[in-house]
Nucleic acid binder design. Structure first.
Ligand code: SF4
Ligand code: SF4
Lengths: 162, 162
DNA sequence: ATTATTATGGATACCAGATATCCATAATAA
DNA sequence: TTATTATGGATATCTGGTATCCATAATAAT
């Protein structure tokens, strides 16, 4: 199990956008250059981010991308969700097995109960909670917090030179 | 990003072993039957679990598998680590990019510092912490806790019948 | 309006890892 | 010695991630 490179690229791209809060947009060319990723591939990623309302894009001369909202309102969780998709990390494929019948003896519940059942699914329940632990942490981490850290580091580096 | 089916099968297999704490071992045939997975594939998984000291295996007549230690000492974390491998979930592939030089201005540190540096890597640090949140939770969840839940559920189901 | 520029999205190719099966061999208990 | 069971190598297949190309749409500048 690995986070996809797309998530990697997306996060780095957003950090770069955050760092370039200057006059106007930054094009795919510059982005591609600083990240060291091909334009074609990075385009796809930026498109996804746009579709999800994380960045704004404008075509044409001097066009490019910019953050759609302040960096402190873009969490790592947001980005991961977009790039990795929304399905849960663990999906039990045994729900029709004999073991499932042994473990979960309830008769097939009415449709209304279905959602509750899923959460009560023994092994899935544990894995789902674990996943949520990670997501909860990612919800608290924003692009801005990375920017702060980067600037702080850059500053202390200046100090060391003197 | 998805947990592999192997992890799924492994967890279910261990639960079955835990439930079968009877006289002796349970063979791949029975295991395959209750899980609904082919023997050949499940063998591979069990082998891995054995190599990692999670189950014990004995060939020959009446052979099979059994838990190598009490179920309360087998954590979900153990199983996940074996099946998914030990590399970290997020690996930055930009460490040679121009952006990296912008973010992390320190000159190449001496070898002794290398380990610290990795943790100080801006984006990776966040993702690594998130991963640890999940693992910490998984460390606290054991096969036994699932067994308990399963037995409790089975009991309360009996009660309902009366 | 025209033009140059830039993002978009469909099609496609490629590759790596996950999934899955087969079989010859080794190990063990009866 | 024999029947049984696990082991591990070889191999096939499938899937999703990675990556590129190009025709098209949208926009700003002129
Ligand atoms: S209880 Fe849940 S995890 Fe266990 S076999 Fe049934 S569906 Fe799978
Ligand atoms: S600081 Fe870390 S995450 Fe950021 S570009 Fe460098 S290696 Fe990648």
């Amino acid at each position: 199990m690995q986070f996809s490179k797309s998530t990697d690229y997306a996060l780095h791209a957003l950090v770069h956008l955050g760092l370039s809060e200057r006059s106007s947009n930054v094009g795919i060319k510059e982005l591609s250059g600083t990240l060291g990723v091909s334009e074609s591939y990075l385009s796809k990623i930026m498109s996804k981010l746009r579709q999800d309302g994380i960045v704004r894009a404008v075509p044409g001369v001097n066009g490019g991308y910019e953050l759609a909202r302040p960096a402190e309102q873009i969490s790592f969780f947001d980005v991961v969700q977009v790039m990795e998709g929304r399905q849960q990390l663990f999906k039990c494929s045994n729900s029709r097995s004999q073991q499932h019948r042994l473990l979960d003896e309830e008769e097939s519940a009415p449709e209304s109960q279905r959602e509750l059942d899923r959460k009560e699914c023994l092994i899935e329940k544990v894995m789902y909670s674990a996943e949520q632990q990670m997501y909860q942490y990612l919800r608290e981490q924003t692009i801005q917090s990375v920017l702060d850290e980067a600037l702080k580091r850059r500053f202390s580096h200046e100090m060391n030179k003197k």
